[in-house]
């Protein structure tokens, strides 16, 4: 998954809390830098990488309820280091942030939690796998070849809660070159892998009551220390699942100098992946909707001529606004055109 919400802090210093994280700065001094020669080592790499500045565990899912409605769910745990030194107790300069989103056919719920590391209120462990903040958790259920093959996912906001189990039906996919995912022409990069093959089942608790749901989920793991170029102002990120079982991850990093950077990963139904070269893919915004005082493109045309791909991607609910410390749009989409399917869209910097 692309450089994400925490980076908004760097891009939008006017955001109220942004200054809280502005200690991040824009240089990577003292922090580890993504290494093209790194090869993922599981389960260790499921756990945190505190020597990197930022990191996340990011799960999105499109779910069908027993009430006939379609729901979109997001669960994210961010880690941000205020300094490259490690410490325990109150002195630990690691900040954790949880975001939970729930999109219904006619609305969107958001919840956010913040905590500092070092005291056990939030954190992540590789083996047994758990990533948590307060009572929100993504927990490995154990007994599987990979710790992420079977997980449980919980979160609770003021208006909603959810509790799911997720089982992977395919392998973990590394993006870019063996998980080294380049983010700009200037070479900014991150370590990035996904588990795009989750079958999900569980319960949503809504103000009106509980809804049993099933569907598909997509987990992203990414860490870096300086993943954005200074001219990059935001991004549009897609994770799409097609009816033939193939998947696609695609993103566009927008630049204020006009050098947009567009790339992605094509994933076959068996999990074999191929990087989509920069520029091969077109992501063109269409109709915009007025959301939270901004014009947000909620319809997109996605074309990839090399694979005969010509898609219309439409938000299921226009107002999937994450009203968090760093606000952004994130919600489920339907895919029509050359391929049919569903997926998730994230847009920042609008």
């Amino acid at each position: 998954m692309n450089a994400r919400v925490l980076l908004l802090a760097l891009l939008l210093p006017s955001a109220a809390l942004a200054q809280g994280f502005a200690g991040l700065g824009t240089d990577a001094e003292g922090y580890a830098l993504p290494d093209p020669d790194h090869r993922f080592d599981f389960p260790e790499d499921h756990g945190p990488h505190p020597d990197f500045r930022i990191e996340w565990w990011y799960l999105t899912a499109v779910l069908d309820g027993d009430d006939g409605a379609t729901y979109g769910v997001q669960w994210t745990l961010f880690r941000a280091a205020l300094s490259p030194e490690e410490a325990t107790g109150w002195g630990a300069e690691q900040i954790w942030m949880g975001h939970a989103g729930l999109t219904t056919p006619d609305g969107h719920f958001t919840a956010e939690r913040l905590a500092r590391g070092g005291i056990g209120q939030a954190g992540a462990t590789a083996d047994p796998f758990e990533a948590w903040i307060d009572d929100w958790a993504m927990t490995g259920r154990g007994g599987t070849p990979d710790a992420l093959d079977a997980i449980r996912l919980t979160a609770r906001g003021m208006e909603f809660a959810y509790d799911f189990s997720a089982e992977a039906t395919g392998p973990i996919v590394a993006h870019g070159a063996n998980g080294y995912s380049v983010k700009s022409q200037d070479g900014q990069a991150s370590h990035y892998y996904s588990q795009p093959f989750y079958e999900m089942a569980g319960t949503l608790t809504l103000p009106a009551g509980e809804v049993a749901v099933t569907g598909t989920g997509w987990l992203d793991r990414e860490w870096s220390s300086q993943p954005l170029g200074p001219d990059q102002t935001g991004w549009d990120w897609f994770s799409l699942g097609f009816d033939d079982g193939s998947r696609m991850m695609a993103f566009r990093l927008r630049s204020d100098t006009g050098r947009d950077y567009t790339t992605g990963t094509w994933i076959d139904a068996d999990g074999s992946a191929e990087t989509i070269p920069a520029g091969a893919l077109t992501l063109a915004p269409g109709r915009t909707a007025r959301v939270a005082g901004r014009d947000i493109p909620v319809e997109w045309t996605v074309t990839l001529p090399a694979r005969g791909l010509d898609l219309a991607v439409t938000a299921m609910t226009d107002d999937a606004w994450m009203d968090t410390s760093f606000p952004y749009w994130e919600g489920p989409v339907t895919v029509t055109g050359s391929h049919e399917g569903r997926g998730f869209l994230e847009m920042t910097g609008y």
Binding site: A115, I119, G120, Q121, D134, D135, R156
Partner: peptide
């Protein structure tokens, strides 16, 4: 105790 605080947070 710090652990009591963390336990309350982890209970939600």
């Amino acid at each position: 105790p710090l652990a009591d605080y963390v336990a309350l947070r982890r209970a939600g």
